[in-house]
């Protein structure tokens, strides 16, 4: 096994006042890996994700990313300009609430095309063609290209958000409960779609979820968080089938049988 990690996280800590949201978190994410962060609400997983993705500044620790464009960079020491450029070219971020990740006032095509235009694409026809291709890849009818996401169902919005992120061919995608709040049948479709895209595009991803079924389907590795700390980590099926820590055992035992 050669190469180097895509993301190296060391001793990451974030406090809100006296409350520790995440404490001393460290891991390496390797190219092509999908890492799940699981834990109950308030365990610090979303804070951790935001610190990893450069959306929140940690109080201590470092996040080193192996950038395709500029080699190893410390995400939190980059200038804001370079960090923002990174987040809209080499990274993606899929929000739980698609409305936060989409421009609700413009068409699906414009939503998908924005990243392309932001990096200088100036050919309307080509942008539109790329947007059409992506609409197909996320299984939205092509004749919805000029419709606004306000007219879309929750599942379609989430798929549109995924397309909007992946159109720039990112290397690393952060996902915060991407199927949260959706009907079970809609969830299944999105999970299947994400699974295929991650596999085919050789994406690396960090996925926050409280749903262990989602974690089992999408991730290679898991980190289990409790009270801001990582209490267990390892291969996904091993953590779920042979949980070691009391908290993980409790989480696994809490799932209703399918």
């Amino acid at each position: 096994m050669t190469g180097r990690p895509l993301l190296s996280v060391r001793e990451l800590t974030k406090r809100f006042g006296n409350r520790v949201a995440c404490c001393d978190v460290g891991f390496d994410l390797w190219p092509g890996e999908v890492l799940g962060i699981v834990g109950e609400s308030g365990s610090g997983k979303t804070t951790l994700l935001n610190c990893l993705a450069g959306r929140m500044t940690p109080d201590a620790g470092s996040v080193i990313y192996d950038s395709n464009a500029s080699g190893l960079v410390d995400v939190h020491r980059l200038s804001e300009a370079r960090r923002r450029l990174l987040t809209r070219t080499e990274w993606g971020f899929v929000n739980q609430d698609a409305r936060e990740g989409l421009r609700m006032g413009v068409s699906a095509g414009a939503n998908i095309g924005e990243r392309l235009m932001a990096i200088g694409e100036r050919h309307y026809g080509e942008i539109r063609q790329t947007a059409t291709d992506w609409l197909g890849r996320v299984e939205i009818e092509l004749d919805r290209l000029d419709d606004r996401p306000t007219d879309f169902s929750g599942g379609m919005r989430q798929r549109l958000q995924i397309a909007r992120n992946l159109v720039s061919n990112p290397w690393l995608v952060f996902m915060d409960e991407p199927t949260g709040g959706l009907d079970v049948s809609v969830q299944a479709r999105i999970l299947d779609l994400l699974r295929g895209l991650v596999e085919n595009l050789h994406l690396s991803a960090v996925l926050v979820t409280h749903d262990l079924g989602v974690a089992r389907l999408l991730t290679h590795r898991l980190m289990v968080m409790q009270g801001g700390r990582v209490v267990e980590d390892g291969l996904t099926d091993q953590v779920l089938d042979d949980p070691q820590h009391a908290y993980t055992q409790m989480l696994v035992a809490s799932i209703l049988p399918a």
Binding site: R103, V106, G109, E114, R115, M117, A118, R122, Y124, I127
Partner: peptide
């Protein structure tokens, strides 16, 4: 990018 989005 957002300005170009409005023209798109």
């Amino acid at each position: 990018g957002v300005m170009q989005v409005s023209l798109y």
